[in-house]
Amino acid sequence: MLMRGVIFDLDGVLIDSAEAHLRSWRVLAERHGRTITDEQFAATFGRQNRAILPILWGREVDETEVARLGEEKEACYRDLIRGRIRSIAMPGAEALIRDCRAAGLAMAIGSSTPPENVALALEELGVAAHFSAVVTSKDVTRGKPAPDVFLLAAERLGLPPGQCVVIEDAPAGIDAALAAGCAAVGLTSQHAREKLGHADLVVDRLTELASGRLMSLRAKAAVEDHRPSR
């Protein structure tokens, strides 16, 4: 059975946003008398703010503080990238999206980032209309590597997870995709190939992918029911 849906991560897959995220985290840290190392950033990139902040702050951070600090950081991030999305688009991203659309594949975004970030990126890339579903950090309680974001994305596409392929750049994202029962493609934009080796397919560039290659990945049998926690 061929794959019928594609779920894209956003950061590190469709846009090369790592530098802007690092800069915005450092602005936030400086405002609050803290510092963030490259190693800390690399270890947390792609996770939800509720998981990142306790690591960077070195203490427990309650939900109210997570919301306040997270909104401050994400507003800074959007200020940095607004009007620049096309300049940081991953090579081949737009072409792959349009190819998948032409092939009749249903598409979703499954991201740990807030919905405002996703909306800005898709709007400036001019591809928002191609996506039937968007799942962000505000839609699920448990972030990657929990499977919730991809389970909900598949549900919103009206497809079994086993008929969806996820394109991810982070080991935690690959873990989440496989736990959901999806096929997983690892993109080496942020991590070395060996870190993504548990994916079904690993590529160095989106230009190595096309709808036919994604559709030919083996559909997976249903896995134990893991309903997303919302």
Score class of each variant (00 low, 15 high):
Arg86Met: 09
Lys138Asn: 08
Arg218Trp: 09
Asp148Lys: 01
Ala93Asp: 06
Asp99Ser: 06
Ala51Trp: 00
Phe131Met: 01
Glu208Asn: 13
His198Phe: 00
Cys76Arg: 10
Arg34Gln: 15
Gln40Lys: 09
Ala29Phe: 09
Asp200Asn: 13
Phe41Tyr: 15
Asn49Val: 10
Leu28Phe: 11
Ala51Val: 07
Phe41Arg: 06
Thr141Trp: 07
Ile88Leu: 14
Asn117Met: 06
Ile81Glu: 12
Val223Ala: 11
Ala222Trp: 04
Met90Tyr: 08
Val203Lys: 10
Arg78Pro: 11
Glu39Gln: 15
Glu124Phe: 12
Ala146Val: 00
Lys73Gly: 09
Asp11His: 06
Gly143Cys: 08
Leu196Pro: 07
Leu196Tyr: 00
Arg98Ile: 03
Gly33Asn: 08
Met3Gln: 15
Ala89Pro: 11
Arg47Pro: 03
Val6Leu: 09
Ser132Trp: 00
Asp204Ile: 07
Ile174His: 00
Gly58His: 02
Thr37Ser: 15
Val61Ala: 08
Ala154Val: 02
Arg218Gln: 14
Ala106Met: 10
Val134Lys: 04
Ser17His: 05
Glu123Pro: 07
Arg26His: 11
Ala172Cys: 01
Val149Tyr: 00
Phe45Met: 12
Arg193Tyr: 00
Tyr77Ala: 11
Leu80Ile: 09
Arg156Glu: 14
Ala210Gly: 15
Val13Glu: 06
Ala103Asp: 10
Ala222Ile: 08
Leu159Phe: 13
Met90Thr: 14
Arg47Cys: 01
Leu217Thr: 11
Leu217Ser: 08
Leu178Lys: 04
Leu105Tyr: 05
Glu65Ser: 07
Gln190Glu: 13
Asp175Thr: 07
Val223Cys: 08
Gly158Asp: 14
Val166Pro: 00
Glu168His: 06
Arg31Lys: 14
Asp204Pro: 10
Leu178Thr: 05
Trp25Asn: 08
Ser87Lys: 14
Ala133His: 01
Gly181Arg: 04
Arg47Lys: 14
Leu178Gln: 02
Gly83His: 10
Ser87Met: 13
Pro147Cys: 03
Glu63Trp: 09
Ala177Tyr: 01
Ile109Thr: 02
Cys164Tyr: 04
Pro115Ala: 15
Arg156Ala: 10
Ala75Asn: 08
Val149Asn: 01
Glu194Trp: 02
Leu125Thr: 06
Glu116Ser: 15
Ser137Ile: 01
Pro147Leu: 03
Ala154Thr: 04
Leu125Val: 10
Ala146Gln: 03
Val202Cys: 10
Leu157Pro: 13
Lys138Tyr: 03
Asp200Trp: 03
Glu74Met: 01
